[in-house]
Design a protein around this nucleic acid. Structure first.
Lengths: 212, 212
DNA sequence: AAGCTCATGTTAACGGACTTTACATTAAAG
DNA sequence: CTTTAATGTAAAGTCCGTTAACATGAGCTT
């Protein structure tokens, strides 16, 4: 019906921050209709510009999606890092907090998460995206490095393997059960409880002392 | 350049099995370019018919995708069931075999797997798809039901929770590391080894005897 | 066997999305 | 102030999605 900016706030010929506006529009459209549910022209319309304008900022729709994903990985890394909190108050609690942070991100930012893991973009083709994704994984990896030092040296699992295990659990829970509405199975417990119990059992299997 | 069926094998006016041909074409296109990487018209062209022909068999592209997914879930259920093999030779070995079957399916049939889990179709909207997906999960559930009977009654975890844990591990590994080429991280071990070790540690955490 | 009927295909036409090219505007640099 | 480059628009071509009208022929009835 009306443009995004209404009559009082008439847009000037130059938008001023179209790049950011397009990324924001893409996030909202992904959130509403999934990673395949919007077009380049839709994003342009949401930002209130002509269909050709986005081409000044992104080569194509995939480039826009890749930038959404890159931004997502950066926020993701920050969120995981906050969850870990340098191993405070203690490494095992902090480790569970990473899992909670993982699910909280997937739940709070489904658009970012979908762009990062379900949009079909290839990280190899985009160095910035790749390094952002590696920075996020590095948080998990560093946490695992510290956790294994709690075990006697003879019983330590490889920290890289351990971080891949945790990542796969978190990602599995997040993609299958993590986000609100889409085709989900009725669960006997929340996704958070499911992941927490899974990680707990896993850590017990590695010989970590059970809490309590 | 040339139609799919060449001059010797001229196609008749009626294709004869267009529905199956379209599903097959969709699978090949998904395999090549991802679940968002083909159009209704592409599928028609691959099958060698006019762009309007698919509408006689599927309401729209999503309906075609849903049917690919439904067929995928049926084969998936059969493959998991074969892996479980009624708990032979013993339940724990058979349980690991389910995991191997899970990854083998994701690797051998990436198109089915993508249609099932990454195409953005909603199972609720499609009863056939939903029930096919439930039959597949039921295999995991039944295996967990039988496995927990190996533990003393006081230490038995809920079998439903356990099956959800295993599903999340398998799906996590499969989506992150399972399929050949796309944007994968270099791994210290194969996806199969990664999943097997993960499940092993998890089962140890539940108190199952470690093999050997 | 002849003819009817309907599922299954094609052709044609319309609207919308993507993309490119040429042109317009304006912010910023000199 | 003038120049220049970045940023946006307009217009046109191509392709896809969708629908409607028409064509074909496989199978049933008689």
């Amino acid at each position: 019906m009306s443009l995004k900016r209404n009559d009082r706030e008439e847009r000037k010929y130059h938008h001023g921050s179209l790049r950011e506006a397009l990324i924001k529009a893409a996030r909202e459209l992904i959130k509403e209709k999934g990673p395949a549910g919007f077009t380049f022209a839709d994003a342009a319309r949401s930002a209130g510009v002509s269909p050709a304008a986005p081409y000044r900022h992104f080569r194509d729709r995939d480039a826009l999606m890749a930038d959404v994903a890159r931004e997502g990985f950066e926020r993701f890394a920050a969120m995981l890092s906050t969850g870990w909190a340098n191993g405070k108050p203690d490494p095992i609690t902090a480790f569970h907090n990473i899992g909670r942070a993982y699910l909280a991100f997937a739940r709070a930012e489904p658009a970012y998460y979908a762009a990062m893991f379900e949009s079909g973009i290839s990280a190899d083709a985009n160095p910035d995206l790749r390094s952002a994704s590696e920075r996020a994984f590095a948080v998990l990896r560093a946490a695992a490095d510290q956790l294994v030092t709690l075990l006697p040296a003879a019983k330590r699992p490889p920290a890289l393997m351990m971080s891949l295990h945790i990542w796969s659990m978190s990602h599995g829970i997040a993609s299958l059960f993590g986000r609100g509405d889409a085709g989900r199975r009725p669960l006997p417990m929340s996704a958070e409880e499911l992941l927490e119990s899974e990680v707990l059992i896993y850590l017990q299997g590695l010989g970590f002392p059970s809490p309590r």
